[in-house]
Amino acid sequence: MQAQVLEGGFADPSIDAAYAFRAVMIAMARPGEIVTVAGAQPPAPLSAAAGVVVLTLCDPETPIHLAASHDTPQLRDWITFYTGAPFAEARHAMFAVGAWDDLPLADFRLGTAEYPDRSTTVIVERRNLSNDGAVLVGPGIKEKAALSLPETQAFKTNAKLFPLGLDFIFTCGERLAALPRTTRVT
């Protein structure tokens, strides 16, 4: 393992993870709200925000899928070193990371009727993340919110599966926003 993969983790894991989780939780509870996170400097192409999410939520119990855009030896080593999360095919993944066009959405787990929570959380790396574009309504949103999504159809289809479905976290630099399956997109 190269020296560089041994860098870029949380300096103070329990405290850094506590702040990071609060931010991710707010994002998931308030779809469209963009939050800033800190504490991870992962190797490219993973963004700092996606790195923070991985460090905060992943461990040996969470199979993770790297889309082609993010499947590099350096990133694998980094994730293995800091989280111990096993790498998995899309259909076995609890988490997935990658660029929108490289994510095999149809293969991810949607949960089951009895356990809809057993679905993949998809971390989508974005070049831009801003509060414009698609209009969002649903739980967590007072009236409506706006978020720059890669497209709208996939999220409309996903919302129709409720209570099954995927939950998304969009990451860009040190910022992130989330879109759970309950959000209706237009």
């Binding site: 991710v24 509870a29 929570d117 959380t121 967590g140 939950d167 759970p180 399956r181 309950t182």
Partner: peptide, 13 residues
């Protein structure tokens, strides 16, 4: 982490 993952899925459903 295990509890946090459960909280996020709880918020999503």
């Amino acid at each position: 982490r295990m509890i946090r993952r459960a909280i996020l899925k709880g918020l999503a459903i």
